[in-house]
């Protein structure tokens, strides 16, 4: 694998050796530039690179596999449609793509219809989710321990605030309610939690 990967590993200390986002940043950026010129083959390769995470993220946020599929499709088509607007000076291609995907997923769960289904969405995933890809997910869980390991270095409040916002799509006002914590505290914990996470993951802004 790439020198960049090796560098990412050194930065973050002991890692699992599984390629992750930092190892694919350049590829995604190169492909995205080709996509911006209307290159459908490049888009197909970009799909292979990011679709499992786009879909997985959508599924994690909206929970319902059918809706997750719709969200993933919307997000990926949006990547195609707006690829010309990607600005590498502002961040990595993967950050740009997953920002679109997460935004779409959050929009979906905050729509009125989704609010109606919200309680169902919160039902214990552990016992009720009809997964077709449990095996792959379990393997992925083990392979992606770095993020989890770093999440565990946060305080409970930091971690809960971040995961409730990102994985469950709650607004920070809702997070404050759920955690029975003052609003200013929640926004501060989100920020300092992410800063600690950044330091643990060894994230660099691609410029």
């Amino acid at each position: 694998m790439t020198e960049q990967n090796a560098r990412a590993q050194r930065r973050a200390g002991r890692l699992t050796g599984v390629p992750h986002a930092t190892g694919t940043t350049d590829d995604a950026a190169t492909l995205l530039r080709a996509v911006a010129r209307g290159d459908e083959a490049a888009f197909a390769r970009l799909y292979e690179l990011v679709a499992p995470r786009v879909y997985g993220l959508a599924k994690r946020v909206v929970r319902d596999p059918a809706q997750a599929e719709e969200v993933a499709q919307e997000a990926l088509v949006e990547v195609w449609r707006t690829a010309t607007r990607f600005d590498p000076a502002k961040g990595s291609a993967t950050a740009w793509i997953f920002t679109i995907a997460h935004r779409r997923a959050v929009d979906r769960v905050r729509s009125e219809q989704a609010a109606h289904d919200r309680v169902q969405r919160l039902a214990p995933e552990a016992t009720q989710t009809p997964h077709d890809e449990v095996v792959e997910e379990a393997t992925a869980h083990l392979e992606r321990q770095q993020v989890r390991r770093c999440l565990r270095t946060l305080t409970d409040l930091q971690r809960e605030a971040i995961t409730l916002a990102y994985y469950s799509g709650y607004t920070y006002r809702e997070v404050a309610q759920l955690l029975d914590t003052a609003l200013p505290t929640v926004k501060t914990r989100m920020r300092d939690g992410l800063i600690r996470l950044r330091d643990c993951l060894g994230v660099e802004v691609a410029r």
Binding site: A21, K59, R144, V147
Partner: peptide, 9 residues
């Protein structure tokens, strides 16, 4: 974005 790494499906 790295949080998305953990949501592969």
């Amino acid at each position: 974005v790295r949080l998305a790494d953990d949501s592969w499906a």
